[in-house]
Amino acid sequence: MTGQPVPTPLREKKPILCIDDIKKVADKKLSEIVREFYNSGSREQVTVHENTSAYRKYRLRPRVLVDVSHADPSTILWNRSITFPLCISPAGLQAMAHPDGELATTRACAARGINMAVSSFANYSVEDIRAASSDIGPIDHAMQLYTLRDRDLQLRMIKRAEAAGCKAIFLTADSAVLGMRYHEHRYDFRSPAGLEYPNIEITSSEMRRTTHEGAATGMTSDAHSWVREVPWLRSVCGMEVWIKGVLTAEDVELAAEYGCDGVVVSNHGGRQLDGVVATIDALPECVKAARGRLRVHVDGGIRTGADVFKALALGAECCWIGRPVIWALAYDGEAGVKKMLDLLYAEFKACMQLTGCNSIADITTASLGIVRSDGPIARL
Rank of each mutant, 00 (worst) to 15 (best):
R181I: 07
N115H: 15
D27G: 06
Y182P: 09
R35E: 14
K28L: 13
S266T: 06
V263M: 09
N199D: 12
R372I: 09
T105A: 06
H70Y: 03
R56W: 13
D100A: 15
T172K: 03
F189V: 10
G305E: 13
Y187C: 15
G101H: 05
H212S: 14
V34M: 05
F170M: 13
K339Q: 15
R107W: 03
R35C: 02
T2N: 07
A173S: 09
Q94P: 11
W327G: 00
L254K: 12
N79Q: 15
V298A: 04
V337C: 05
I19W: 01
Y55E: 03
I22A: 12
Y345P: 05
V34A: 10
A164M: 11
S42C: 07
A316C: 12
K29D: 09
Y331V: 01
E50R: 10
A378T: 10
K13V: 13
R112S: 15
P231D: 05
G300W: 00
A131Q: 06
I114W: 11
S31C: 06
E206F: 03
E127A: 12
G333Q: 07
C18Q: 04
I16K: 06
I76G: 06
W320I: 02
A215W: 11
L380Q: 15
Q154H: 07
C166I: 06
K339V: 13
L312A: 11
A378Y: 11
L312C: 13
V230A: 05
E162P: 11
T83S: 14
L153W: 08
L60N: 06
I82Y: 13
G356D: 08
